[in-house]
Every structure is written in C-alpha cells, then in structure tokens.
Nucleic acid binder design. Structure first.
Length: 432
RNA sequence: GGAGAAGUACCCAAGCCGGUCGAAGGGGACGGUUUGCUAAACCGUUAGUGGGGGCAACUCCAGCGAGGGUUCGAAUCCCUCCUUCUCCGCCA
C-alpha cells in the first residue's frame, strides 16, 4: 500500500513513478472522493461528540428527578443519523481501500521505466561451459542417472510434479544444507514456518487480492470461513510467511535489522504457463526454496538489498555455475517491489539464463499492509519498517544447471565440491 | 472432535444485575525528594495506537480478543468468529 499522504501532497510524483511501471492512473477523482470522505468523517464525529456529551448528562438529569423522555427521543434521532452516516463513511472507506489496493509499489528513482527489454545486466560470473561432446538435456541426464522420476511424479500429482530419488534426493538435500550452512554463518535466523497460511498473510505480502488465483486455496469447513469459502492457502513462497512474522507489531529500533531465512517448498498453480522449452523441472507446481528476508530501518534497506544479492550470488558462485545479475526495469518488478535484482544461471540446453534468485526491496509497501513498524528512538514515534526478500536459493533450476554444467562424456556428472560432504564424499553422480 | 473456563492498558488484575468507567488496585518503567553511594521509603508520570479538525496551542472520534446486534447510552446484555487454558476422545 502506498502512503495516502504522499498521494495527497504529491500526486504527480506518484503518477509518474507508477507510469514507469506501466501503470496509468489519474488521481483526480480519487482526491475528490477523499475530500468528501473526510468531510463525512468530520460530520459524523461531530454527531458522536454530541451523543457522548448528552449521554453523560442523562444520568444527572435523572438523578435530579427531571423528565428525560424528550431528550431520549431527540438522541434517538441523533443515533439514527450517526448510523446512516457511519455506513456512508464505511462505504467510502471500502472504496478508497479497494482503489489503494490496486496500486503497485512506487519504483525507486534509479529504476528505469519499461519492461523486460530494459533490464540491465550489471554483473556476470564465469563463462558458458564448452563441451567436447554432444551436451545432453538435464531431463535426459537426471533420468538416465535415476535422480528424478518424472513419470511417477505425474502419476502422483499430475503434470508439473516430479519425484527426487536416490542421489537425486540426496543432491537436492545437499543443496539445501549448503544454503542453510551459509546463511547460519552469516548470522541469519533459521525459520521453519507453517505452509498453510491465512488470508491476512496473502494480503500483507501484496499477493492478495490480485494473485489469489495463482495459489492453491483450501476450502473452509462447513459454516466457517470467508465469503468465497476459502480461509487458507498453501504458500507460494516462504516470503509470504516471513513477511507476516511481525505483522501488527512495533519493533525495537535497536533490534533491527531482523535477518531471517526459511526453507519451504513453494506451491504454485502456474496455470497456463507450460512451455515446451521448460520441460523438466524449470517450472513446477512444487519446488524447494530457501528464502532470505530482512526487516530494516528505511535508511538501511538499500544496503540490505545489496547484501542479499551478494549472498545469493556467492551461493551460485560456490557451485561454480555461470550466471549473471540483472537489475530489472520498473515494469518487470513485482507489484509490491521498488527495486529488484535477478540472478540467472546459464542452462546450456535452453541456451538461456533462468532465474534462480530474485532479490527485492519492498520499501514500506508490505509494512503498511501488515502494519510492521519500529519505534524511532530519536522521536519516540513508530515508523514503518522496510522489508526485503531474496531467494537463497531455489533448487529447481540449480539442479538442472549442476547436471548440465558438470556432465561428462561418459554420462556421469561432477558434483560441485561444496556439496560433497552431504553426498557421502562422492565426487560424481554415476549410473548405479 | 466433544465438554467446560477465560481473553481488560508494558505485565498481573478489579469491574461484568448497562449511565461522570477509557477503566480501581498492584507490579514494572520513567521523573523527582531524601542519600557519601546503592537500596529502601515517599511524591509524581505512565494508552499505546489509528483517524478527523486546526497555522498553532489544542481539540474531537474510535478503541476493554475480532466482527456484528440490542439500547438514548455497552468493558458490562445477545449472536458469530479467533485465541488460550483444563478435562475427555482420537492420533503421527
């Protein structure tokens, strides 16, 4: 959610920022409605003040033995007026909130306008691997080595699911261990959150109401639940859980920044997004990811974003995978984000880079939605924190990259050094 | 899953047969007096927050788990939901 005060005082600045995201808006009608809304609030609050005043007098009048029937009748009218005006204000509030909910976050000033085509590569690590033999697709490799069982994944869950087996499961787990070890070494707190979250979590993250259809929702029990009959959903990323950890809290300034990481599978519908070139495990309904998350003071969030990107990059570098880092144009950032870097790893079979981490600064957008604040010692006043998130990392594109980058002529795969201690010391994945 | 009980400010807790109750009391915290220092004692302050109006001083509204309802008036009565505790059942 954007600061309504900012829209009131600098509508043109906000309009321009949103335009860079490709979001066109005219605040004229909004500001006029906002004015009427505040007028109505003023009126109804004056009525309430009168009601309170007279209500305090009634017992005294009674005590003095005066007849209050006329006063009661008059107050009945006042109360009816309050009720009617309250409803009108509630309608205006709801309309205003609905409008504010549609507004994406404002990109930072250094984020360029436009979509994907304006993304800029800021760093490159390593080079594209060259093979002296016909390089194979990761699906062929993992199937021939018995690492991933696609057919049975489909049997169990349908298209978009797979089963890790033997060294495949072990490699997946080794990756997660490698990530966890790094984050612990960097002083991040390890979180294992619930995977089933309530409605408010989706709202705070900025995913609801717009992206409700992208997640798996759980139908409420008979008689319970919200309008649509859904009260909970399965998280599409651990970010959704982590951003809600401190919802409705006022934090100590001294305790900031909070640095968290969480492991969860991510569950996504990915409806209609299947593409032939993404066969395998590039885009599934369930994938494993470790998510990093920070709560910072506003003045610290830019540095925190660089820290998060750096951490994600080092993880990929530790695996020896060729990758690049891009700064996204405004239109390619998620709605809730002010600035985003993507880390993309080279997938030889696709002749392309695929995202393995996205690091973003949400500014106070999520903090406003979820009311996450800290008390500024200098002023004693609460302020909204900034929230940042970054994958660190998603495995489902790392594992294909590892097997394709490390493949040998004999069909075996070299295991990255850093993972071997979780692979029983094995150096290679071989046909058993 | 069933049956009970409870949710009040930073914490504990009174109020709960409706009306100067936005809320007694205690603890804690903060400030002060006393003091060689500390402690103790005593005095004082302590609803934060969100939202209106006002240049401002200031003022008003909301708020006793959440949301509705009854009433001129609700912490107090009614309904729904959430959470916690106790007991029973079931179970990894």
């Amino acid at each position: 959610m954007l600061d309504i005060q900012l829209i009131r005082t600098q509508p043109e600045y906000v309009r321009e920022g949103l335009a860079r995201k490709g979001f066109a808006v005219d605040f004229g009608p909004f500001l006029e409605k906002d004015r009427l809304r505040r007028e109505a609030i003023f009126e109804v609050e004056n009525l309430k003040a009168e009601k309170n005043r007279v209500s305090a007098e009634i017992p005294q009048l009674k005590k003095a033995g005066k007849d209050v029937t006329e006063t009661l009748a008059r107050m009945k009218l006042v109360s009816d007026g309050i009720r009617a005006k309250d409803e009108a204000v509630a309608r205006m509030d709801a309309e205003q909130q609905a409008f504010l909910d549609t507004l994406p976050n404002l990109p930072f000033d250094d984020v360029v306008a436009g979509g994907k085509e304006n993304n800029r590569v800021v760093r490159v690590f390593g080079e594209k691997p060259q093979f002296a033999f016909p390089a194979r697709h990761h699906v062929d490799i993992v199937e021939s080595l018995g690492l991933i069982d696609y057919a049975r994944g489909v049997k169990l869950g349908g298209n978009g699911f797979w089963v890790y087996r033997r060294d495949g499961a072990r490699l997946e787990w080794a990756l997660l261990n490698y990530f966890i070890e790094q984050h612990l070494a960097d002083g991040y707190e390890f979180i294992l959150p619930p995977h089933i979250l309530n409605e408010a979590c989706g709202y705070t993250a900025g995913q609801f109401p717009k992206f409700r259809d992208d997640v798996f929702q759980l139908r409420a029990d008979e008689g319970a639940g919200g309008d649509a009959g859904f009260t909970h959903f399965i998280l599409p990323t651990a970010e959704t859980a982590l951003v809600n950890l401190h919802r409705d809290e006022i934090l100590d300034e001294d305790a900031l920044p909070f640095k968290y990481f969480a492991y969860t599978p991510c569950y996504r519908k990915e409806a209609g997004s299947y593409r032939a070139e993404e066969r395998g495990m590039i885009r599934g309904h369930q994938f494993n990811k470790i998510e990093m998350f920070q709560y910072t003071r506003p003045e610290d969030s830019e540095a925190a974003l660089e820290e998060l990107v750096g951490k994600a990059e080092r993880l990929v570098q530790g695996l020896g995978l060729h990758h690049r880092v891009s700064k996204l144009a405004a239109g390619d950032c998620s709605d809730a984000m002010r600035k985003t870097y993507d880390i993309e790893v080279w997938i030889p079979s696709m002749n392309d880079y695929k995202e393995v981490s996205s690091a973003s600064n949400a500014g106070d957008y999520q903090a406003r939605r979820g009311s996450m604040r800290f008390r500024r010692k200098e002023t004693g006043r609460p302020e909204f924190v900034h929230t940042l998130n970054a994958s660190g990392l998603a495995t489902s594109r790392i594992l294909p990259a590892i097997v394709e980058h490390g493949q040998c002529a004999d069909g075996s795969v070299v295991i990255p050094e850093v993972l071997r201690k979780w692979m029983g010391g094995q150096e290679r994945l071989e046909k058993k």
